[in-house]
Design a protein around this nucleic acid. Sequence first.
RNA 1: GCCUGGGUGGUGAAAUUGGUAGACACACAGGACUUAAAAUCCUGUGGGAUUUAACUCCCGUGCCGGUUCGAUUCCGGCUCCAGGCACCA
Length: 840
Amino acid sequence: MMKTNDNTLPEYNPHLIEPEIQKLWETNKSFEVTEDTTKEKDYCLSMFPYPSGKLHMGHVRNYTITDAISRFKRMNGKNVLHPIGWDSFGLPAENASMQNKKPPSEWTHTNIAYMKEQLKQMGFSYDWKRELATCTSDYYKWEQWFFIQMYKKNLVYRKNSIVNWDPVDKTVLANEQVIDGRGWRSNAIVERREIPQWFLRITNYAKEILEDTDTLNWPDEVKQMQKNWIGQSKGTEIIFIVENLDYKIKVFTTRPDTLFGATFIAIATEHPLVKYANQENINDFIEETKKTAINEAAIETLEKKGVFSGLYAIHPLSGDKIPIWIANFVLIEYGTGAIMSVPAHDERDHAFALKYNLPIVQVIKPKDNSNIDISSEAFTQKGILINSCTSDKYNNVSFDDMNFNEASDAINSLLIDNNLGAVKTNYRLRDWGVSRQRYWGCPIPMINCEQCGCIPEDEKNLPVLLPIDNINLDNGSPLKTMKEFYETNCHICKSKAIRETDTFDTFFESSWYFARYCSYDADVMLDDRVSYWMPVDQYVGGIEHAILHLLYSRFFQKAMADILPYTIDSLKEHILPREPFTSLLTQGMVLQGGVKMSKSKGNTVDPQELIDKYGADTVRLFTMFAAPPTISLEWSNTGVEGAYRFLKRFWRLATNHIKNVSLKNNNSTNIVHSKLNSKQKNIRNKIHSTLAKVIDDYNRRFTFNTVIAALMELTNALNKFEISDDIDTYIYDEGIKIIILSLSPITPHISSKLWEMMGNNPDITFIDFPVVDTEALEVDQLEIIVQVNGKLRAKILVTKDLEDDELKSTALENQNVKKFVTSTPKKIIIVKNKLVNIVV
RNA sequence: GCCUGGGUGGUGAAAUUGGUAGACACACAGGACUUAAAAUCCUGUGGGAUUUAACUCCCGUGCCGGUUCGAUUCCGGCUCCAGGCACCA
């Protein structure tokens, strides 16, 4: 019999199998792809890693997911592009460099080499010929080029913007380097400093990005987050004139109906009007405000403070004099940097007015005329106007008794007619500041010429190479002191010029790498191969990228679609997609002891130990089994043993089967389902219902944990299945093969080896995925749940599609059901082939 | 503070469209095999009640309330945790 233990069988040894199978893939070039118009393309992509040193569990999780999807799709006849690369510019390399005195370039390339080896050990099915690293000039040359194209299209501009300034180290700090308002190295209190920086006009695309969001097959929460981030609001821009100054303050409000309740104006400390302020304590206030961090979370949780500027604005319609305050909660970067404050109808303004004893004037009353006490609490709902009447200048027009819509329209019209305002759509989204005062990034290809001013570098001179030798980072970015880097000549007038020493935000690199994979070796930014592969069909990455990276990439894709067909010859006849990622799977965070496994903080678990001990298949299996991809997961090693045990158990089951049966006579086409006995029908039902579930989970749900659970159940069922004749053996063989192939996207090495041992070619990359025998899914008898008043009281076995009346009487005959049906049932609810609920 | 998720046994989780709560594992306990250990296999395992036992019953999906014949699932309120908040990537 088959299931006796036989110690002559080869043991499961991943350390022998895995390198052997990986070698085979390499020899066969199994995962290299080219454009093949006869096959349906499928572009499956993981967010590329930052080469922090070694793989962590978050990487393993992310890359196993796309690997499983890629492998599944290849087995379904798709031409699958599955590339990988390195997001290799960024802050951690500079920090590491300061610690260990190795140049960032060397540190980065060492890390890439090590991590590449790890990825290969994991058996991920990448097309390695497309590998790219963003820190190489082959890559960043093209983003310098594209930046110049965007400059030509007026998508680039320069303006002053605020950064964190460490007054001791005399460097700009990233938000992450500011800890409780102090520089992480110097411990000095961080200041705000305004410096000129380059911006991309992402707001030009705000409307399109917003509107296209609904076309994406992305998680609803990500779409909602992006919509809220873009934050479209329709409202009114209103002009207040400053008394005794020829100065107009613009404010934006979504509640023009509350205009007559505006009792003061609040402006940001960086607002240009501040220089006219004439109160003594203002400088102290500004100095204090300068010492708060620049991130929104810090500003929003700050105690709301302000100071009177000594200036007054004239209310545009009432003509009243209202004070102008400088406030720490108004952001210069957001909107116009000034707001009209209506304490009666806005909570923040209300609190501020109470604190500084400013007037609170009610101009809205509830629709139902209920009593409200405006002195204790703001009334923020829309209602009916009161106390809203213009001055003589505008003929004492009253807006009282109007509702929100009527009042807004009437007030807007009056403002527009008198050039005091405009109806406007505002976005919360701000233009993208791409300048970084750092070394390890792509140089911004701009020069400052004494004669010609600030202009782009000549495209012929690209790339502007980042120097990588003799780098010392102790005093901030070395580019700022390297004459050989920044001294240059203007390519137009040949006079002396100074090169821009800032580098790009690293989100710049990650906003188009997905397109470069298609044209990995092109001598232009992109070529017509992108029109075959793009857009990415399935993108997978961490939920922490739900907004920034994914939004910037959408902007870039739209900008590329607008620019490249007019600038690159091979793209002239092409229409590029306007969205980069058709479907998105956001992977949950991998936590360690409840802490985010940050790429830059180094508190990572090294999966290498697990690979060394159990092999890649076990690590892949466990990572997928531990949880569905979307939820965050606190990593723990418990359970890896279980995954390993399962593989060993399945290996034994399969190898026993291989050894004990003659493969030649073993043919599942000998199975005629209708002629099987009930034991055989049952196990075939289990085999094929499992397969159906597996296919659905791979295809639609991406819940690999339930794929594995179902296959474990099937393995347990086969283990219990007693073989007594040839037909049993055929069915058993069918089950084993289905498990091997169903597992193969997740555990490709063991599957390949077992497949080979069953007499087949071990390269299963393009084997057809098994097909469900729908006949095997049919059953004669079903278990029906019987409830009384919604509580489970019995399970009854009945024939399929039993008539309702018969089902009712069968249910009511059940002894346990009888105990609870003490009176005539009021109602009996039947869910066909599933449930009976008797209501008494 | 704002935006977006989430909370189910000792642990990771399952329950896919409102219909059996806890599949599949981990851990633990007991047993088999072994001189012993490892490995492997078998049994049990949410809490409680009852019973020789089988069965059966009550409670239970963060908290409070609602809708429904029926709620882990839908709605309202709260609470705690996580992600993001524009210079970490």
